[in-house]
Every structure is written in C-alpha cells, then in structure tokens.
Design a protein around this nucleic acid. Structure first.
Lengths: 335, 335
DNA sequence: CTGAAAGCGCTAACAG
DNA sequence: CTGTTAGCGCTTTCAG
C-alpha cells in the first residue's frame, strides 16, 4: 500500500509537501499541487489515518453506543446522530451493547484504545458508572443519551419518562381502567425508575392504591418466552388487571406475546399501553397505544452537545429534556 | 494518558517487557510480570491500539456495512455478525449507507484509511463495484451480504430472491389473484432484479401475461410519501390490481401507507405480500404476508466466511445461498 | 529472561 | 513556497 513517501518520490517533492496537499494546509504552488494530486490519483493513494491519528492525537471519529440495535428508538436515534456528525466532518462508528454490561465494557475498551474523539453513550444501567469514569479519566468527552447515571455529572439528552408515564397511565384511568399492571425494565436503569414513579403518581392522583403485586419486571430487550401469564388466564376476569402499562416498546411486545400464548386477547381481555413507539411499523399498522419520543432528535441534539463539548471541555454540563407524545390506539379498550 | 514507557519506568523494566506482558508473548518471569501488571492497574493503563496497529498492520477490527439501519433484516444480521466476531476475538464496527452510494463511498474511505482487517459488505447497488475494487486493490478482504455485484467474484452470502419471489407470487395466484402489481426496488440492486425475475416466472407458469404497466419502482428505503396512488382509488375495482408484491419489507410499508392515504383498504380492496419480514414486530401483530429470510444467519455465516478469508486469501470464492420461508397472513385475501 | 535500536506513516515546528 | 528533523506509542529484530 502506497505511503506518503512513495507519492513524494514519484512527484519529486518531499513528504511534507504531499502532506500539505492532502490536508490543504500551508502554501503550495498550483503547479506542484497539481502534480502531487495527479500522482496520488495514479497510485491510488489513501492516507493512513492510523498514522495520522498517532501524531495529531485526534481521529475525527466519534462513537455511538446503543443498547439495542433492533429497537427502532435507538436506530432512529442513530440516524439523527450520524447525519449531524457527517455535517461536521466527523465519522460515526456504531456499537451495540444489547443491554449487557459485559458487552458495554468491551465496547468502551475498544473506544478507549482506538482513541475516538468522543462518545454518544446510551448506558446499559447504573453500573455503567465505572465505564463513564474510565472515559472521564482518559479525557474522552461523552454525552449521555436517553438514560442518566447517578453520580455522573455530564451533558445528557433525556426524555420525560416520568411525565410521559404519568400522562399515559392517567389516560388509561380516564378510559375506565383501575386495575393497571406495570411491566417495568430493570430498576438499574433510570428510565425504568422514572416511569414507575410516573405510574405511581398517576394512580395516586386518581385515588387508586398502588399495589406492588401488580408490578412485574424484566430486561428492556424483547424476550420471546420470558413471561408466563397462565395464572392470569386462570383468574376470574374481575380479579385480573384490565390494562398493562409497559415501560418500553419491547416489553409491550413481550407481554403481548405472553398474553397471546395463554389465550388472552388484546384489547378485548386486557389493554396494553407502553413507552416508546415502533418507528415505521406504526405507520403501517398502528395498534399499540404509545408514549412516543422524538428519537431522531435524541441523536441529533446529542451530537450537537458532543461537538460543542469537544470544543470546550470546561463549560457547565447541559441537560436537554425532550417531550413525548401520547397516542391512544386500538390496544387500549374503553371500559 | 499513560504510555508504555510510563509503565516501564514505574515498574523498573523496559518498554519491551511491558509489551510482552500486555501481549502474553515471550518469556517474562512471574515476578516482573506481576509487578508490571500491578503498575498497569494502578496507572489505569490502556494500550494504544492506534500505535499498535501502525506497527503490526492489523487492527483486529472488522467492519459491517449495511444499507438501512432501521430495517430489522439488517439489524438482525448485525447481531449475527457481531456475535460471531466476538467469539473470535474481533471487534465489529457498524456502518450505515442508507442505500446511498455517496454515503457508502464515505464509509469505504473510512474503512480503508482506518486499516480495518476485513469488511462484511451489503452493497447499495451495482455501482458499489468501484468501492469493492478499492478494497481489492488495497488488499482488504470482504464478503458480500444479501446482494451480488456483477463483475465482482468473491465470497457472498445471499438469499434465494428469485425462488422466494416466485413462490410468493405463485401463492398469490393460488389465492385467486391474477392482476398482481409489482413494487420493486432499484434495478441497480441484484435482489430487485432477481425478485422481479421470480415474479415474472410465477406469472408465466400460471399463464398470466406479464404487464410492464403493473411494475412500479422506487428505493428500498421506507419513504413515507413517495407513492401517489390516487389513480388506483379512482379506477373501477375490476380494472385495479387485486394484489401487490413488494420486493422488500420497507416497500410493503410504503405502499401500505400510500394505499391508506387514498382510502384503499388492505386486504379488503388490495392484498399485499412482500419479501423479508419485520423482525419482532411480526410476533406481536402478524399482518403482512412475507417471504422471510434467516437474517441472523446471514451475519453469522458471512462472518465465518470473512474470518476464513482473512486466514487464507487464496482459496476459491464461496457462495452460500440461504433459503427463505413463505408465510401467508392477513394482508392477503382469498378471492 | 530482558533490553536497545529501528521503524510503522504521518505531521508539527522550524529552517531556508 | 519547500524541505529537514524529530517524534507520536508501539512492536520487531537482534543482542545480551
């Protein structure tokens, strides 16, 4: 593979001049510039960004870590982040932790050793704290996306988890539901805690007693067979919950699958509402009632914050809270 | 940030010894090894893989380029590729071209300049040829995923586009449809050509004349407002197509949206079938009739081929063809 | 078992 | 406008 010296030799100039042509820095006469460009073309020269990175100490590569690459919320976020990065001359590298601290650790180590210029980070949970501290210690700027981590003060783009959950559960109540179950994500994740808080607030406001028995919990990833709801199927309809609030889209899917498999119908037997939407799927077949978040903007705004942070590392951390929109659809039945 | 020399000084050894400890190469006494490890721990040392890559000429990073990060077919593929890469001590970097040759070019240049060890490549179309030639010229191994590129002989993992399309369209015919429209992707993409060929074969086998008028075409990405079907709405039901075969999942969504917006119902007025499925969405609300491909295996097998290719660059190119499964569902009506 | 020297490909800083 | 020198952080090679 051709190096800058091969080009220099061929063009009868020094490596430095070639470097100047590549980077458009310093003065180079039109004539030599043309000559060098021609030689680069002929030899199909591609600058080695590894070598460049070693000397300049910057890679012009940013990284986006998401927790579920099959979740439209995160992939749409990825689009927003990528578009914004491109516009500013940065390249974006995606990583996927699958909600796993182990995979996240692996990925963070890669980031650290690759000397990436900055990270857009959707943490897998509170234990991500350690990983964020590594980034801080190695002086790699980052912005948190979607989730907060207690004990870490930094830029973040978040949704209104508590408000959105409260709004949605209030709607359920308005539709006549009083026996509402919660299917929540891990309490290790800030959004899960906030959404539960919103759920409780809505109940309280309506004078409905909170019942821990109605709370279930599992990971935010879609798990096909995680839930066994046969006990619900056997219950008297009057004692069974009439609605479920799922703390994210994948949980809604999991419980939907579980309900089906024990013969309970949505919304006839049980209503479902959830946080997050389903991206383009919704346009085709709007079924689930959702509190939908502006995913693209999470990525776009997060990228803006990151780029500004890279330029000025001293400014005070900023938190952006993005609103969500509640849509009631077929999956919720009026009682 | 600590370097190998900082560690060496602190541990009273040479940089070379530290290097040996890091890489577990050569003989180092247990005592010095322990000491070095301890110092690395204390100083939170992270090896600089950029420097390492510069000298060893390998990065242990592989790259996966997909054309649509919001399409479950590709994201599921990404999971398969990632899992396989991890198992073999490689890291995987994702890239997304959004079906755009321009973005793809950008991404390939990044790959080339980063000195990635190999690429899993879902090309945006036939014009990707040039990009693949760059890879070849720079001696970067790659495996094609999902799509072929005429004029490029290489390893590839493909689906049975022709057979699957033919199968699905035959089913449509069996359900009584004879006036079947095709919504195809760009003819620049091998799968689009193959799927059209399968569509035509199925018609011919049933003695139905192929009608170019019934063929529509647009990009494989989901475009919300790309199609105006008001002419169909105004037609006499008898002259209108009774079914549509969409060449991928996103096209099915686009046409579904378009039909809805002009007041045509699926499947009452028009049936829809398509290539590819919708991932987890289907479990919840199976609606579309699909020819579903084993996306995870595309990634997994592709990664295996890539790793083998990296080891042995001389072996003959291999093509793996993965079968698809046809599922008829609510979106198709029996006439 | 350990170290010294050289160099991967590039650019910053300076000199001309 | 152009070139020289030095060095980014690491590993390879060879010597001890």
């Amino acid at each position: 593979m051709a190096t800058i010296y091969d080009i220099a030799r061929q063009a009868n100039v020094s490596a430095m001049t070639v470097s100047r042509v590549i980077n458009n820095t310093g003065r180079v006469s039109e004539k030599t510039r043309a000559k060098v460009k021609q030689v680069m073309e002929e030899m199909q020269y591609i600058p080695n960004s590894v070598a460049r990175c070693l000397v300049t100490q910057e890679s012009k590569i940013l990284s986006l870590l998401i927790t579920d690459i099959t979740n439209p919320f995160f992939t749409t976020m990825a689009r927003g982040a990528e578009d914004a990065a491109m516009q500013h001359g940065y390249r974006l590298m995606f990583g996927n932790s699958d909600e796993s601290l182990i995979k996240e650790k692996d990925y963070v180590q890669m980031i650290l050793s690759m000397r990436v210029d900055g990270v857009l980070f959707a943490p897998s949970g509170d234990q991500s704290k350690e990983h964020l501290e590594w980034l801080t210690r190695q002086n790699v700027p980052f912005v948190l996306l979607d989730r907060e981590v207690p004990g870490i003060e930094c830029d973040a783009v978040l949704g209104d988890s508590r408000g959105g959950a409260k709004h949605m559960v209030s709607e359920l109540i308005r539709y006549g539901h009083r026996h509402i179950a919660l299917l929540n994500g891990s309490e290790e994740v800030s959004t899960a805690r906030e959404r539960k808080a919103g759920y409780i607030e809505a109940l309280q406001e309506a004078g409905i007693a909170f019942d821990e028995q109605l709370c279930m919990q599992m990971g935010y990833l879609h798990e096909r067979d995680a839930l066994d709801l046969s006990c619900w199927a056997e219950m008297e309809p009057q004692t069974r919950p009439t609605a479920i609030f799922a703390a994210n889209n994948m949980l809604a899917l999991s419980i939907y699958t579980a309900l089906r498999s024990v013969g309970l119908r949505v919304p006839d037997d049980i209503s479902i509402a959830c946080f997050d939407d389903f991206g383009w799927v919704e346009e085709a077949n709007p079924f689930f009632s959702v509190a939908s978040q502006p995913a693209y903007q999470f990525g776009e705004i997060g990228m803006q914050l990151l780029l500004e942070r890279i330029k000025d590392r001293e400014q005070a951390p900023r938190r952006v809270i993005l609103p969500c929109q509640v849509h009631l659809r077929e999956s919720v039945r009026q009682l």
